[in-house]
Nucleic acid binder design. Structure first.
Lengths: 152, 152
DNA sequence: TATAAACTTTTTAAGCTTAAAGTATTTTCC
DNA sequence: GGAAAATACTTTAAGCTTAAAAAGTTTATA
């Protein structure tokens, strides 16, 4: 195979991945909106906080989700308004704040997470366990393989 | 395998796809910005217009890119400002407009497209032609497989 | 031919996203 | 101790994104 055709094949693969990912994101966004009055970014933030027993600092959240600092500030602002999250001062460092789910936030997340997994399972109906495993392996060879295992 | 573990495996696959896709998008966005003073949405729109000899109506563009009408309006507004695109009245239907790349727009897109393919090829360096082909096939089983071949 | 329905696009309001600049605080190190 | 650098976060400006509403135009139909 020529380098030419390899390059084209990789480009095709990328476009296909992009299309599938956008479609799934769009479905998730729609359902979070209509069924939970929420959004995908909010869900992502809440998932990260749910997994962290003691909450996270803003910059940890930002690193973990790979989004900008300012972006996290805005999303947290809104989650605080909604009563799902609280900012807690950190002893001995007045620059930073720790962010935690409130118990209402935890409850709300649990409800979304159960459905989220159901939605994904349905959307990926055509994918067998073997397929999933196989694609997963191949994805490791793609960019952004988790250099930091804690982020994957 | 239990339905339980299949569901978990699919969820893991989704999260991995999402991570890879976001990483690649982030790289592309960064390079379009620094090297071409452009953005990914602009690139997508220009790609669609480049492929359409006679340009496209706004709603065709919107359908093809799977983004909202209002979104397309804004992107086209900015491309028109930049002189990359022009709106052309359609004979016999004063509701619609046809949108075309200007020759400056075509030239600018060509330059970006060449590099874009190079970037993807480098980012997907670890993927052989076989892999690419294989994942591509599997992706057909995922949601949003092109029901309309003209959109893939 | 009216007028209702459908279509095409833009506008609006709200939120997400980034990079860059700004503010405050802590750490480094001379 | 004090200046400089690093760190943590927020603000700002610009653009992307959506859903819903609005405005104008065309088509269907009664």
């Amino acid at each position: 195979m020529t380098a030419e055709s390899l390059s084209k094949e990789r480009l095709r693969l990328w476009l296909r991945m992009l299309r599938v990912t956008r479609q799934v994101e769009s479905e998730l966004r729609e359902r979070l909106r209509t069924e939970h009055d929420s959004t995908l970014p909010r869900f992502d933030v809440m998932a990260a906080l749910y997994a962290a027993e003691e909450g996270l600092k803003m910059n940890e959240l930002s690193k973990r989700l790979r989004v900008s600092n300012g972006n996290v500030t805005g999303i947290i602002d809104r989650l605080v308004e909604d009563g799902a999250v609280e900012r807690i001062a950190i002893e001995g460092d007045r620059r930073a704040t720790r962010v935690c789910l409130t118990s209402a936030g935890r409850e709300s997340f649990r409800a979304m997470a159960v459905e989220h997994e159901r939605w994904i399972n349905a959307l990926f109906e055509g994918v067998t366990e073997e397929d999933a495993h196989h694609i997963g392996e191949l994805l490791h060879r793609l960019p952004a393989a988790p250099h930091d295992a804690s982020l994957s």
